[in-house]
Simulated assay, not measured.
Amino acid sequence: MNKPTTKSDLTRAQIIEGALRALSKTGVIGTTTRKIAAEAGVRLATLHYHFDSKSALLVAVLEKLIEQIAERMHQDRVAEDADMDQCIEQLLRGSWRAIAQTKAIQIVHYELTLYALREGIQWLAERQYEAYLRLYRDRLAVANRGSNQLSAAACTALARFILAGIDGLILQELAKPSAERSRRGIDALVTAAQAYARQLAQ
């Protein structure tokens, strides 16, 4: 993760962190730039100097969220000698551990997607989705070797399948929390993803 070095970078990072806190409290629609400035401890003029619109700030927030997810996934790295089955299991269980600790942020993720679609900024929703897809695909690449190696297209298809499954479990957990049900869901998703990987390798 790149750390801010200049005063301008530090202020920008401060605003983004303030935006994350504000979004977690009041959601995308209810969060104004004035509320973000207050949460960040900066003047409104300072916020607008660094970000000329709410959309520009939301892009920066999205990039921060993706960076945080990538960092968590890096900390829970897949063993270099893991086969595809092991990689899938480690990836899913590690991802779910990180997700379970950041429920408020998960809501912000979905709100950002819906906001982008409602406001006609489709590229922001696409950018968010592609970034998460790339994170999963890159992790799967660690185990994508040997006689049953997947093609690039198959590896992407497997990453899409895993991402779709994780998204469904997150929404279910947010709507009606149950750690035990989610654990069983992850178990089932691991098994299904492993079977799909074998199918794609044929």
Rank of each mutant, 00 (worst) to 15 (best):
N144V: 01
D167E: 10
E180N: 11
R184A: 08
V28G: 06
R145M: 03
T113M: 04
H74C: 07
H50P: 06
E89G: 10
L135E: 12
E130L: 14
A164E: 07
I36Q: 10
P4C: 06
E126Y: 00
Q90H: 09
T191P: 03
R137K: 13
T32L: 04
Y115W: 15
M84E: 04
A98C: 07
E71R: 13
S55P: 05
E119M: 11
K103Y: 05
E71N: 10
R139Q: 10
Q199H: 12
Q68V: 14
W96E: 01
Y132F: 13
V108G: 09
I162T: 09
D138V: 08
T32S: 15
Y49G: 06
L135I: 15
T26D: 08
Y136I: 06
D187A: 14
A159C: 10
S178F: 07
K35F: 00
A157W: 04
A197T: 05
R127A: 03
Q68C: 05
D81N: 15
L124I: 08
L91F: 04
E173V: 00
E89F: 01
G165I: 02
E180D: 09
Y136R: 07
Y132A: 12
Q101E: 11
T5Y: 03
A70Q: 09
Y132R: 15
M84N: 01
D52R: 15
Q122V: 13
N148F: 03
G94Y: 00
A159P: 14
H74Q: 11
G168D: 07
H48P: 02
G146H: 10
A38L: 05
S151N: 10
A192S: 10
K35H: 11
A164F: 00
D187I: 07
R93V: 01
A159R: 03
A38W: 00
N144G: 09
S24G: 13
C87G: 04
D83Q: 11
L140A: 02
I186V: 15
M73L: 10
R184N: 04
I121W: 01
L200E: 05
A201F: 01
D81V: 05
